[in-house]
Amino acid sequence: MHEMSIAQSLIDILREEMAKHNAGTLRSVRLHIGQLSAIVPDSLSFCFEVMTSGTELEGAGLIMETIPLKGTCRDCKQTFEIQDYTFECPECASTEIDTIAGQDLSIVEMEVD
């Protein structure tokens, strides 16, 4: 259940950003969840709900979008979607792949009042 610690980090960042923007209520927050990250969106929602209930963040919607894995081949510079977690270039079969999307867990947008 590391969604608990993820939810805590998320809440810390949200509080910080809200203070920065003098915001009183959080309506919603949009997250990008990389396909390779080991997060279960439902568990994260659940932890977030439990941990924010009774606080100024209560009731905020968590909008989560799963970001597919993408890589760039260092040899032929091709960019492609990584299928079945296979880190091999479909163009030239090189295994020198830089992951460019689908690994991170990030906040992209907040809606506040």
């Binding site: 980090s9 960042i13 950003e17 923007h21 915001a23 867990l105 906040i107 992209v108 907040m110 506040v112």
Partner: peptide, 14 residues
């Protein structure tokens, strides 16, 4: 009001 943030959630641990 919408605020765009773009922050890695695990940045504090990182």
């Amino acid at each position: 009001m919408k605020i765009s943030v773009v922050k890695n959630i695990l940045e504090a641990n990182d």
